[in-house]
């Protein structure tokens, strides 16, 4: 009898009350923290190093950092990503309250914010490369492009993920509702994580 009960628990609730998809997502995000932490710490230790063979050997790293000016562009990007976090949580709130119209509207707004952010980052990269800082000619460039490039890639993945959610929500309006919103919640967790990483990058790389 007891064995049968245990077997039933294992079969019906292998996570003992835990949602395994959510557990998996948090574990994944935890590993991502180490990934971005390693990249940012590498940037901190290497940004003052100039390759001896580089034609930019005498390039003053402080001058390179001045390319950011008073961080006008990156401040706008920070504002956009922060706004996208709000729109994402409002989309989740929409689906949890069974308001499909609000859910789709805010999800679309989040995707739009992500696309604008990516456009801004491409513009920033173009500007910096145009000024002579590339991924090859100095450690500042290498580590800078690695950190911000990987973050941009994560934003792009997030945009694709949320777009697939939106398309699915439009094609099957009954799919997401107050009783079934885990897919939206997982997408939201990923998106907020991307915003969190930008909070770190913005402070450590651009402001300090």
């Amino acid at each position: 009898m007891a064995q049968a009960v245990v077997r039933d628990i294992d079969k019906n609730d292998p996570g003992r009350g835990l949602d395994l998809r959510k557990l998996g997502m948090w574990t994944f995000l935890g590993s991502e923290v180490f990934f971005f932490g390693a990249l940012v710490v590498t940037h901190l230790s290497m940004r003052g190093v100039v390759a001896p063979s580089s034609s930019k050997a005498n390039y003053d790293v402080a001058a390179v950092r001045n390319l950011f000016g008073d961080n006008v562009l990156t401040s706008i990007l920070a504002f956009i990503l922060l706004t996208s976090s709000l729109t994402m949580v409002l989309a989740l709130d929409g689906v949890k309250t069974n308001n499909q119209k609000r859910f789709r509207f805010w999800l679309g707004a989040t995707i739009a914010c992500g696309l604008v952010f990516l456009g801004g980052q491409v513009y920033e990269f173009y500007h910096i490369v145009h000024e002579g800082v590339t991924i090859k000619n100095m450690m500042f460039g290498s580590t800078f492009f690695f950190v911000t490039g990987f973050h941009g890639t994560h934003v792009a993945v997030g945009v694709v993920w949320l777009t697939s959610l939106l398309v699915s929500a439009i094609r099957h309006p009954e799919r997401y509702n107050a009783g079934n919103y885990m897919a939206v919640e997982l997408g939201g967790l990923y998106w907020h994580f991307v915003d969190l990483v930008w909070v770190l990058i913005f402070t450590v790389i651009y402001l300090i």
Partner: peptide, 20 residues
């Protein structure tokens, strides 16, 4: 997200939009 105690379509959660 999805369990037997989750509200159905007619049992929507309370909105926290103002807090957000």
């Amino acid at each position: 997200g999805h369990d037997e105690h989750a509200p159905t379509e007619h049992e929507a959660h309370h909105s926290h939009a103002k807090l957000y």
